Amino acid sequence: MFDKPEAVAEIPTGPVPVPERVRELTGGRELVPIWVNGLGGLTFRDMGGPGNASASYVKWVAAGTPELDLAEEANRLGWARAQGAAVPEVLSHGADEAGSWLITRALEAASAVEPQWIAEPAIAARAIGAGLRVLHDTLPVDECPFEWGIPARIEQFEERVASGESPGDWHRAYRNFTVAEARRRLHDAPDPDRLVVCHGDACAPNTLLDAAGNFAAHVDLGSLGVADRWADLAVAAWSIDWNHGPGFDTLVYEGYGIDADPERIAYYRLLWDLG
């Protein structure tokens, strides 16, 4: 059986309590829970209503979850949209003592992990690759104020180790490494292939497809920043394995228009899991 990372995000299969602040922000309307991430962040769909004709999505993160900074995500979405990227419009965001929220306008598109695209993995894989190529070709590296570079991500690895994390907490592919071996590999990074403005979380759920199965938009850009394009590509193709089953990862590269690069794929998957 294919082993996906632990604490992954997923579509909820049962009821999800709506935080009180989210109820207030949406006027008490009925909300549909559509996503729960590995750190407990929630996303709801608000179909709108009188005085709020547009449907929207509401992301919520409880206070004390520094890994999920919705204000920073709002900043990145606003910047990327201003540069012409296909991303949602931010309607509002804020925070109080209970948590933080981000509300974006709904798009006429569906996540690549919705049932119709889980049933069409080849279409989803190619669209994910094509979408990353559009993003990478659209956003201007020289004007990007955000970084997603290797040194900061290695610092996160060191923080995790210092907090008591051990190789037993890592993906199965890396559990035979010692901390020293993992550290050595992380510091032995390949030269950049092409610096781009990366999505930063290019997993399959964060690509939206139109009704014909073409790339439509990207969501969840909280880590967007400049990095080698393989930092996105390696994880996007890995995510196809987690979400759609093995055997379709090469179609992500095909959709992007690039041949697989085993050295960079191996490095950026290790960095993703440990950093």
Rank of each mutant, 00 (worst) to 15 (best):
F2S: 13
D3S: 15
V8L: 15
I11M: 08
I11F: 10
G14C: 09
V18E: 12
P19T: 08
E20V: 15
V22S: 05
E24S: 13
L25G: 14
T26S: 14
T26A: 14
G27A: 13
V36L: 11
G38Q: 10
L39C: 15
L39I: 12
G40Y: 02
G41C: 05
T43F: 04
T43Y: 05
F44M: 04
D46C: 10
M47A: 14
P50V: 10
S54V: 15
A55H: 09
V58I: 15
K59D: 09
G64F: 11
L70E: 04
L70S: 07
L70D: 05
L77Y: 03
R81H: 08
Q83N: 09
V87H: 01
D96E: 14
A106I: 07
E108T: 14
A109W: 03
P115W: 10
Q116G: 12
I118M: 07
I118Y: 03
A124F: 01
A125K: 00
I128G: 00
G131W: 00
H136M: 04
P140Y: 07
V141D: 06
I150G: 01
P151N: 12
P151M: 13
R153V: 01
E155F: 03
Q156P: 02
E158H: 09
P167Q: 08
D169S: 12
H171M: 09
R172P: 03
A173D: 15
A173Q: 14
A173Y: 11
A182D: 01
R183M: 06
D188K: 13
P192F: 05
P192S: 13
R194V: 13
V196P: 00
H199T: 05
D201S: 08
A204D: 06
P205W: 04
N214P: 08
D228E: 10
L233K: 01
S239L: 09
S239D: 11
L251K: 01
L251R: 01
Y253L: 08
I258R: 03
A260P: 01
E263D: 14
R264N: 04
Y267N: 02
